[in-house]
Design a protein around this nucleic acid. Structure first.
Lengths: 144, 144
DNA sequence: TTTAAATAGGACTAATTAGTCCTGTTTTAG
DNA sequence: CTAAAACAGGACTAATTAGTCCTATTTAAA
């Protein structure tokens, strides 16, 4: 469903959101540590999220990453998934047909259509800030 | 979501179901051709499906694959997916936590739980024979 | 002003998934 | 009885995804 890069990216973003609400910067070690993710790989993904404008970075000593308040207010999971995995999740046929559509449907098209819509809707309506709140209240966890 | 092996496996099975209703055997070339899938790779997957008891094979000249009527009657997509991809689809955490559960939920757990249940339910309740019927009526296609 | 702590980014390696190819065996038709 | 058509299966190659490592640059603090 989601690539490893995307899993790490979501965990990193949720952690950063939690920190950013308290105006804290976090460096790659803290971010990767919080989600039990590989450090160097997480660094790569954060670069990508920074280029997409999802997170912001401060270079140099005492630098790190954070999420701007006005970005965080509206940031949802679909934005993160799209930034990292592209729009395959919304566009691709579940059986891999290159031109699967209503007029040329694969055998699973009508049944999968419903599922796909729900996945996209869930990602689109889930705000990173609400996930960060749950995390803050220790209702959820980034590792175990 | 599904591996390529699984996509090819489902297409192969649906095609075989359609053929088997007319008591026809199909060889690997016909099966792969019907779904625009790589021949040798499809052969591998059919072997696997044969070992799982989902399809049956007849060796030798004029041999091929088919699905037994009493298997086909109850065969659903979840059986195929499980035979090829294992039970990751039903068990794995969307964020990759190794022990994600109700008491140790990842940030997406409660939202993804609903989606996962619908995916599994869809796979479980979709019979290969109904997909084969749609195919037979040219309501759906295995390639384009 | 130097040093150390950080991000940026490219080149590289490792692991997994996707896919091929070859050899052996079975079986039917001529 | 032999040749050809087919599956079985293992060894291999290719492509993609996952992940590391090194060097350059920035910047704050001592």
């Amino acid at each position: 469903m989601l690539s490893k890069a995307c899993e790490y990216g979501i965990k990193a973003t949720v952690f950063l959101a939690q920190q950013s609400k308290n105006d804290l910067l976090s460096n790659v070690n803290e971010i990767a540590g919080a989600g039990n993710s590989p450090v160097a790989f997480t660094a790569k993904i954060l670069q990508q999220l920074a280029r997409s404008g999802i997170v912001a970075s401060v270079k140099g000593a005492q630098g790190g990453f954070y999420i701007e308040k006005n970005v965080l207010r509206k940031l949802n999971l679909l934005q993160i998934v799209t930034a990292i995995d592209g729009d395959a999740i919304t566009t691709e046929c579940v059986l891999g047909l290159s031109h699967c559509s209503e007029i040329n449907p694969c055998p699973m098209h009508s049944k999968y259509k419903v599922i796909k819509a729900e996945i996209v809707n869930m990602l689109h309506t889930t705000l990173v800030s609400e996930l960060a709140d749950d995390l803050d209240q220790k209702l959820t966890f980034l590792k175990n």
